[in-house]
C-alpha cells in the first residue's frame, strides 16, 4: 500500500513538512484503531481486552500504573508484538494479518519510535543515528544526511551531530532519538517513557520540542508515560488498568 512512497516523496515531506493534522477530519474513522486486544506473557495477562483509537495528528497519552500493560499496548499497536486476540487496523488495513516483512516495512515507513533510553546505536554519530531509518529504507546517503541535519536543527541538537551517543547528555540523546523518529516523516510516532530517564527540565524541553515538531508535521503520537506533566503535552489520555483501557478525557473546557 505504501510502495507509492518513493524516496523523492519522502524528502519532499521532510523538507516541506505538511500539517496533516489540520487537514484530517474525523470522517474516515481512526488512523490507528484496536479493539479487544489480549496478550499474555506466559500465564501473566498483560492486556485483557484493551481498546484504542487514534485520529490523524492526535497526541494521545497512555497512562497507568507500572505493570498495567501500557508498554505492551504500544508494542501491539506498533506491530512489534502480535496480540493473542483482538484486531488492530492502521489506515484501514488489518495489522495483525500482515506478515513480518510487511509489518517491518510499515514500521520503517509510517511509524517512528522513541524509547526511554534513546537506544541510539553507540558506534554511530548522532547524525548517522538520525539518518539510519532513512538509510535502512534505501535513501541515498547524501539525502539522508541532509534530512538528518534538518531534524537535528529542529530539535536544537545540531551542535552534537558529529558526536557519539556516549559523549552527549541524556536530554540531548532523547532529542536525537526524537529526530530519528521523525526523520522518515512518519504518520504515527510511538514514544515509550521518552523522558523516563531525564530530570524535569530536560524532560520538559524534550516534550515541548517533540510535540511541537510532531504537530507541525501532522504526525500522530502515542505517548506511554506515567508522568502527568509529560502527559499534559497530549490532547487526550487513556488509562490502562489491569490490562484494560479506558478513556476518561473530558470534553474540552466550556462544555461543562
Amino acid at each position: 500500500m505504501h510502495q507509492a512512497y518513493t524516496h523523492r516523496v519522502y524528502l519532499v515531506r521532510i523538507v516541506l513538512p505538511m500539517s496533516l493534522g489540520s487537514s484530517s477530519g474525523p470522517a474516515s474513522g481512526p488512523l490507528l484503531g484496536a479493539s479487544g486486544l489480549r496478550k499474555a506473557f506466559g500465564s501473566t495477562p498483560a492486556l485483557d481486552g484493551a481498546d484504542f483509537a487514534l485520529s490523524p495528528g492526535e497526541v494521545v497519552a497512555v497512562m497507568g500504573p507500572s505493570g498495567s500493560g501500557k508498554s505492551t499496548l504500544l508494542h501491539c499497536l506498533a506491530g512489534i508484538v502480535r496480540p493473542d486476540a483482538g484486531t488492530i487496523t492502521y489506515d484501514g488495513n488489518d495489522v495483525t494479518a500482515m506478515n513480518d516483512a510487511r509489518r517491518s516495512a510499515l514500521r520503517r515507513r509510517d511509524f517512528g519510535f522513541v524509547f526511554q533510553f534513546g537506544q541510539l546505536v553507540p558506534e554511530l554519530t548522532c547524525a548517522e543515528n538520525v539518518a539510519l531509518p532513512l538509510r535502512l529504507d534505501g535513501v541515498r546517503r547524501k539525502d539522508a544526511d541532509r534530512a538528518a541535519l534538518h531534524w537535528l536543527e529542529r530539535l536544537e541538537v545540531d551542535s552534537v551531530a558529529r558526536r557519539r551517543p556516549d559523549q552527549i547528555s541524556g536530554g540531548q540523546g532523547q532529542r536525537v532519538a526524537v529526530a530519528r523518529a521523525l526523520v522518515t516523516a512518519p504518520r504515527v510516532v510511538f514514544a515509550d517513557e521518552p523522558t523516563g530517564a531525564l530530570d524535569s527540565l530536560s524532560g520538559e524541553l524534550v516534550m515541548r520540542l517533540f510535540t511541537e515538531a510532531a504537530r507541525d508535521t501532522g504526525a500522530a503520537v502515542v505517548l506511554v508515560t506515567h508522568e502527568t506533566r509529560v502527559a499534559a503535552y497530549s490532547d487526550r489520555e487513556i488509562t490502562v488498568r489491569d490490562g484494560r483501557s479506558r478513556d476518561f478525557t473530558l470534553a474540552p473546557a466550556g462544555a461543562r
Binding site: A78, A101, R103, S104, A105, F111, V121, L132
Partner: peptide
C-alpha cells in the same frame, strides 16, 4: 540484545 530490539522496532530488515 536491547539495541537489536530497537532496530527491529524501527523496521530494520533481518537481512540488513
Amino acid at each position: 540484545r536491547r539495541l537489536l530490539s530497537v532496530l527491529v522496532a524501527f523496521g530494520t530488515r533481518r537481512s540488513s
